[in-house]
Amino acid sequence: MSLTNNGDKSGSASTINDAIETTPKVLLAAQQLGVKIAGKTICQNLDLELKAGEIWGVLGGNGAGKTTLLHTLAGFREPDQGQVLIEQTPIKQIKAKHRAQKLGFLLQDEKNAFPATVLETALQGRHPHLGHWQWESIEDEKIALKALEQVGLSDYTERTLDRLSGGERQRLKIATLLVQDPKIWLLDEPANHLDLHHQISLLTLLKEQTKQQQGCLLMSLHDLNLAWRFCDKLIFIYPDDCTREHKVEQGDKAALLQAEKLQHLYQHPIHCLDTAQGKVFIAG
């Protein structure tokens, strides 16, 4: 769907900019969200609004709770407090299938018990859009093939998953998401396993997709340079023993990506350098 619609929506760059400047729609919102896992608080009273066209990043150390926060926002687990809304409707009241039409999620590694082929796997992204007894149509197949081309897996359609490298599998997962074509994208470490070239090309692809479709995207990242390059806004989840008054902080990337805040975030000195190519972050 996304690909066939591309032509209509990406008519000119100015329409996109207009859309951003007029009050954009809130696609995903969290109200007074409290999340705990194994007795540890990840966030409390968190209010969050992901608007159309926005790209968000979640940063934090290992075990800070990035994945748990993402799962809560996707409705995979119940929050301990507050609620999550998709376009004003509480996520709890939305059927799993309808939710999947609006919200796509990129999981960290999952193992396959019985491997399917690459094309079959990409086609699974069409599941939320098909009726109960409906079989994938030739249209669906075209969508899947296009997505596989976008991530550079066109030559592998008949291969089984167990014969793909980690990076290829990651690209296939992104292709499945492209086929699913949601408005809201939640990505758990999308850069995992990807080489430098694919990190940049795939995140660029996702960014363009978000802007053109007027969707929103939230991803957890470890690479500050990628965060600076691709995100509009950021969420920091500070470690427990941090002395800051708020455990979770959100804001524009320029405001958050400061040496002093980053030091708190990672408990490690980080230098910010301004170069001709933009800002660069180096661990001390």
Binding site: A74, F76, H98, A100, G104, L107, E110, N112, A116, Q124
Partner: peptide
Amino acid sequence: LRGEMQAKALG
């Protein structure tokens, strides 16, 4: 077959 979470994510 792709895991419970993946199935959940796809509705």
